[in-house]
Nucleic acid binder design. Structure first.
Lengths: 178, 178
DNA sequence: AATCACATGTAAGGCGTTACATGATTGG
DNA sequence: CCAATCATGTAACGCCTTACATGTGATT
């Protein structure tokens, strides 16, 4: 599933401009996908060529023409096909965890600081999401939002309960090196 | 942090060939990073050019020459610099969750099936990791392994506790469409 | 005075995968 | 007999980001 396909999916929820699609990625899909204009606009052009979306143009004064995209019957069909396939595995990459894997090279203070920062970051995300979750318009979005909250909280709990293992290990390393 | 840097990190744990580095990615970093030969071998060549690793060649009969890489002092210094920087945000992408976000287009049976499959997959991962976690050699690796276990379990719990919301919503959609 | 919201796009480049190319040895 | 392990590498391509290019109007 690429961004081209996701754009198609977003258009199943209603017509939109490229600009609005970008916002939808930010507001509704931020937890699971990201997309920049540099991938959205070319994707929409390609989808138009392929007849999966159609485009109406509205000329505006003092702004670029606004192009409102709609998904076509064929587009709906193709998107349905895409999501009926078994979803590919998640792609996950974490510099934070990678750093901890090499923490034998770090001073104990740095390890503690990274973990503190991580917990702060997660707490902050939880704080800003907690409000949003309630006001999501669809059950699906609420489900995803609460999924995110749950995972962030699980991470905080794990870090708080187990950080001492890493920190103790780092201090032993320090002593051994003396 | 790119794969080039990670190769450097792996070499801080001991000399290795490109082949062995690939295995290290699979055995020890699978949860947080992936790398193919197509990125590892060019990375090692580049690191060699830059003087961050050195390379001894051993000719073997009936096999390509084995190249054993070692990190240099300069390499260690550069890697230290890399991990002392504030880690960049995680990159996460989930087709599974994306599919659920568009589940208004799916029959309720498909939603249930996807969730069942996901839970099965997570259970399987937990099963195969549970043994491994205990036998990891460093505290850091154990920490990461248990982190993975915890997150997978949190996901299973969330899905089991909340799937009915999504499934009920899907059935309502079916009825509304009739 | 500055920043955000609106609105579209391109070009260059980064980063990485997949598939290809080659081939012996060992274990099930 | 087939798959896995050992061992290196390249070429083509995919996918996406960043930075650039342009500009108005409203809000702070």
């Amino acid at each position: 599933m690429d961004i081209r396909t996701l754009c198609l999916g977003i258009l199943t929820m209603g017509d939109a401009t490229g600009y609005e699609i970008k916002k939808t990625f930010e507001d509704r899909l931020d937890l699971i996908f990201h997309a920049s204009y540099g991938s959205i606009y070319p994707a929409l052009n390609k989808l138009t060529e392929e007849g999966l979306v159609s485009c109406r143009e509205f000329s505006q004064e003092k702004r670029p023409d606004k192009k409102i995209y709609s998904i076509t019957a064929n587009g709906r069909y193709q998107f349905f096909d895409a999501i009926m396939k078994k979803p590919a595995a998640d792609r996950f990459r974490s510099e934070f965890l990678a750093t901890l894997m090499f923490s034998h090279l770090l001073p104990a203070s740095a390890i503690s600081e990274f973990i503190d920062d991580r917990i702060k970051d997660r707490l902050q995300k939880i704080a800003s999401m907690a409000d949003e979750c309630g006001s999501k318009q669809t059950v699906r979005e609420q489900f995803l939002c609460n999924f995110g909250l749950t995972m962030y909280q699980a991470e905080i709990d794990y870090l708080q309960d187990n950080r001492h293992l890493l920190e103790a290990d780092a201090l032993m390393g320090t002593r051994a090196a003396e």
